[in-house]
Amino acid sequence: MRFFKFGDDIYAFDENQEHLITSKHIELLGAELDKHINPQNYLSDEEKEQLRLIQFKPLTRRQFKLALLENGLLNTVEQMIESIEDPITKTRIQIEYSESERFERSNESVQYMLRVLNLTTDQVDEMWRYAMTL
């Protein structure tokens, strides 16, 4: 299989299709080819983390709070929100926690709440997966 760029598009041709290749097709070779075939190898750590977080479905308010309750964290989260010193951050987190109908794993405020609970990423992922079943 050979890969070619034609304008902004990428085409793959096997040996039975090589007669379709024109002089306007530019063959992808080396790093450019590898980047097309293995794009995950060229992502930053932040991009990889965002892709990982996208796999977690948003939780309803009910699921989020039940998961916190069942893990003994509901009161801790509420106390943590009350103890935030910066008034802007505190208000933003309170609004997100009190008013959100859906909680997304990649949401900055959700990440903040979960980060201050001192849970590992694996613990949060496990709790999130469980919450998706509630």
Rank of each mutant, 00 (worst) to 15 (best):
residue 1 M to P: 05
residue 2 R to P: 01
residue 3 F to D: 00
residue 6 F to C: 02
residue 6 F to W: 08
residue 7 G to V: 05
residue 8 D to M: 15
residue 8 D to E: 14
residue 9 D to K: 15
residue 9 D to P: 06
residue 10 I to A: 05
residue 14 D to N: 09
residue 18 E to H: 07
residue 22 T to H: 08
residue 23 S to Q: 09
residue 27 E to A: 01
residue 29 L to Q: 09
residue 30 G to N: 14
residue 32 E to S: 13
residue 33 L to S: 00
residue 35 K to N: 14
residue 38 N to K: 10
residue 40 Q to S: 07
residue 42 Y to H: 15
residue 42 Y to W: 15
residue 43 L to G: 07
residue 44 S to M: 05
residue 45 D to M: 10
residue 45 D to Q: 14
residue 46 E to Q: 14
residue 47 E to W: 15
residue 49 E to F: 14
residue 51 L to N: 12
residue 54 I to T: 11
residue 54 I to S: 11
residue 55 Q to V: 02
residue 60 T to D: 08
residue 60 T to M: 04
residue 61 R to Q: 12
residue 62 R to Q: 11
residue 62 R to E: 06
residue 63 Q to H: 10
residue 64 F to C: 14
residue 64 F to H: 11
residue 65 K to Y: 13
residue 66 L to K: 12
residue 68 L to Q: 12
residue 69 L to C: 06
residue 70 E to A: 14
residue 71 N to C: 13
residue 77 V to R: 08
residue 78 E to K: 03
residue 79 Q to C: 04
residue 79 Q to R: 13
residue 79 Q to F: 11
residue 85 E to G: 12
residue 85 E to P: 05
residue 91 T to K: 15
residue 95 I to S: 07
residue 98 S to P: 00
residue 105 R to N: 10
residue 108 E to G: 01
residue 109 S to K: 05
residue 110 V to F: 06
residue 111 Q to A: 06
residue 112 Y to E: 02
residue 112 Y to V: 02
residue 112 Y to S: 04
residue 116 V to I: 09
residue 116 V to F: 07
residue 118 N to L: 14
residue 118 N to W: 12
residue 121 T to N: 12
residue 123 Q to M: 08
residue 124 V to I: 06
residue 129 R to E: 02
residue 131 A to C: 09
residue 131 A to F: 11
residue 132 M to V: 03
